[in-house]
Amino acid sequence: MNSFKKIENIKTLIECNDSIPCLSPAQTKLGIDGLSYCFPIPDDKETVILKTSKYMLKSKLLTKAVDRPDLWKRYKHCFRMTLPNGSGACITICLKPRSKKTKSFSYLDFNPSKMTKDDWYDMHSIMMELFNGEHLSYMKYGHYSRVDLCIDLLDININQIIAEALGTTKFKIYGSGNAFETLSFGAKGSRKQISIYNKYVQIVDTTPGRKTLEDFDFSHDEKTRIELKLRQKTSQKQLKAIPALLSTLNVALLDTVPDKLNADEQNFIDAVSIHGLQKVIKRYKSSKTRKKRRELIDKIIYAQINFDHLVDDWPKLCRKIKRRLLKPPR
């Protein structure tokens, strides 16, 4: 059995056991689940653009984004358009900030993971009409205000996961009993927030008219998503460094299901996810009990999740987003 004297967290526990393999790269998929891009407009162009937006609204090329009260608090005009390609992708465009502190006149919000090549073309077409053919010259001076990095764990049930985010003071768990559906690290609305959730349950909950998983034909039996939300001003150069923020997240997979653990063991596993291994271990006064708890985790962890290969793929994804966002489609 390994020595557990210097174990501080899940990561150091894994490092003490060379037999714990990494999850296969084939079971992980990197993507961007949401982007917000802000860019300025010359003062002498604002009136013309607002008139154009009113015309496009009247012509039903745009609709009011009534489902985004968060954006209406920040901007005077918020529009939504479902792109006509049939993929279901949509974009949200906001104009004229309510606060003088906000220097960017325009705000663009969309999910690049849902967009096909035709969707990018349609998005640029609507932007070209709204900004009178000059949107690309404006957007090159913009920046990202929100980036949602996502990692999908394929055929992995969320209840197999044990995780801790070092340095995070806020933690919430959603679900019932042992079958939780979401782990959330960081305060809601904070600059950095990490969520781990059942992607299929989220799809069911956000799809109108469908209530059960049986109504969908998913490509994998299970899909758990790790999502890093970064809400701060981010340049193209800074975008490439975002995956480094995952270094504080330790994730391992348990080779068991909750009902195979007794109540005391399950409470311990849940506490580790909430408070981190180090804090939970310190609660036990007996060194023998502390050793048994460490041995329990060491015994039931069957794989670790290594983000290194995903970090290597990130620059390529960033270049692809930049090219499609800031260059006219062909």
Rank of each mutant, 00 (worst) to 15 (best):
L23H: 10
C94Q: 02
M127S: 07
S3N: 15
D308Y: 08
D313Y: 01
P25C: 08
L246I: 04
T116G: 11
W72C: 06
K170I: 08
F39W: 06
K5H: 08
V204K: 11
P315W: 07
N9E: 01
R290P: 01
R210Y: 14
P97G: 01
G88F: 10
I7E: 04
L183S: 03
A252F: 05
T168Q: 06
T28Y: 04
G276C: 00
P328K: 10
I49Q: 03
K240T: 09
R283V: 07
A165D: 00
L154H: 10
K29Q: 13
Q238E: 15
K327L: 12
D18T: 14
I242M: 05
L149F: 03
I242G: 11
D118E: 14
K172M: 07
F105I: 04
T82R: 11
R290L: 02
C90D: 13
P243N: 07
S24T: 13
D18M: 10
K29N: 09
R330L: 13
L153R: 07
Y302V: 10
L230P: 02
Q238K: 15
M123A: 03
D70C: 09
T52V: 12
I226P: 01
R294S: 03
K96Y: 07
S3G: 14
V48E: 14
L13A: 03
A179S: 14
D148M: 03
N198H: 11
C150V: 11
Y174D: 12
C78L: 04
D148N: 02
D308W: 07
T256D: 05
F4G: 00
K6I: 04
K100L: 12
H275Y: 00
A187C: 07
S219F: 09
Y121N: 13
D255E: 12
G175L: 05
N9D: 15
I196P: 05
F180S: 08
R191T: 14
F185P: 00
L57Y: 12
P243Q: 05
Q236I: 12
N9I: 02
K292R: 12
T224H: 06
T169I: 08
N250M: 04
G142D: 09
I10R: 00
D43Q: 11
I151P: 06
P21E: 09
S145D: 14
R294H: 05
I196N: 05
L71H: 06
G175V: 04
L326W: 10
K237Q: 15
K199F: 05
I10C: 00
V48K: 10
L246F: 02
M127K: 06
I194M: 02
N267A: 13
G175Q: 07
E8N: 06
L317S: 01
K114P: 03
A303I: 02
G142I: 09
Y144F: 15
Q232C: 11
A252V: 14
K76Y: 13
S113D: 15
K291I: 08
S273Y: 03
E129D: 14
N250G: 04
H220E: 12
P42G: 09
N262I: 06
Q202A: 13
R98H: 14
S235D: 07
V251R: 03
R80F: 01
V48A: 15
T82P: 01
Q160T: 15
S235K: 05
E295I: 00
G276H: 00
A263W: 02
T182N: 12
T234H: 04
Q278R: 01
V251D: 05
F110C: 03
T28A: 09
D259F: 13
T169D: 13
K327R: 13
S219R: 11
E164C: 01
S286V: 08
A241M: 11
N178F: 12
P243C: 07
A179N: 14
S176E: 13
